[in-house]
């Protein structure tokens, strides 16, 4: 399991980081002679080059959004759980509202009212992505905040900020990291979905989801435009899910 997980994830990261440097952007140029030929896309860009650049876009967006969502979610959830009382109730009732929108619906709505662009896509994904982390962080803080070492720190006169930052946070990172690796896979999927629906990356940006959108249009003549990006997305999603499973087993062996 460990070898499989680490191999898959390192291959993905290597392709995303080094791939574009290795093969260069020449294949992204349009060449009408190759329009929809085997191995080429609409107006003749090279599918392999597109997929390699797509890995970079996909992983970059997923990682940036995970870092932002994780930070926002942890701060929000930790404050909610630590302060408790009325503050907790108010903060969590707000989270309930965000949970009224199934799946990527709210991100889809935000992406629809913002202009298409990578920055706006990140905003749309983060606006909904932090909620899960906030809930986990809150429940973790609730579980540890009455432990003796917290009481001891309080008795020593530590400030609340210090207790949260130095005593509580280091003890709740574990489950959050596990969740973050599942988060990367769901963000890869969310980015691909939005790009597939035409609400993700701007037109012309190499993205797996955007290529699949073309593939559905040309399903009769160029099925390879569906198959290869689909395989890429499935492998990427599966790899980060495996990573999450493995991290969970390492932390909590049964």
């Amino acid at each position: 399991m460990k070898a499989l997980v680490l191999t898959l994830v390192s291959i993905l990261i290597a392709v995303a980081v080094l791939g574009p440097l290795a093969i260069g952007p020449a294949g992204l140029e349009l060449n009408l002679a190759h329009d929809l030929q085997s191995g080429y896309g609409e107006n003749g860009f090279d599918v392999f080059t597109w997929l390699v650049y797509g890995a970079r876009v996909s992983l970059m967006i997923a990682c940036i959004c995970t870092v932002i969502s994780l930070s926002v979610g942890v701060i929000y959830g930790a404050i909610s759980g630590y302060v408790g009382g009325l503050v907790d109730i108010i903060l969590m009732r707000f989270v309930d509202i965000l949970l009224a929108f199934p799946g990527i619906l709210l991100a889809l709505y935000i992406a629809a009212i913002l202009k298409p662009g990578i920055l706006n896509l990140v905003v749309a994904l983060c606006a909904t992505g932090w909620v899960g982390y906030a809930r986990v962080a809150r429940s973790q803080v609730l579980a540890v905040k009455n432990q003796d070492y917290v009481t001891a720190a309080l008795a020593l006169g530590a400030s609340h900020a210090r207790i949260l930052g130095r005593h509580i946070l280091p003890n709740i990172w574990g489950p959050l990291f596990v969740q973050a690796s599942f988060g990367v896979s769901s963000l890869i999927l969310a980015e691909a979905s939005l790009s597939f629906l035409g609400l993700g990356v701007p037109p012309g940006t190499p993205s797996w989801g955007a290529l699949l959108d073309q593939g559905v249009t040309y399903l009769f003549v160029a099925p390879h435009l569906v198959i290869w990006p689909g395989v890429c997305i499935a492998v990427a999603v599966l790899s980060f899910n495996f990573l999450g499973d493995w991290l969970r087993d390492v932390r909590d062996p049964v």
Binding site: G209, L212, L219, V226, G230, V231, I233, A234
Partner: peptide, 19 residues
């Protein structure tokens, strides 16, 4: 079923069972 995105599974089904 868990790892195949719907927008991959659906065109594949179309390819096989409609085309």
């Amino acid at each position: 079923g868990i790892s195949l995105p719907k927008f991959f599974l659906a065109p594949m089904l179309l390819l096989v069972f409609s085309i």
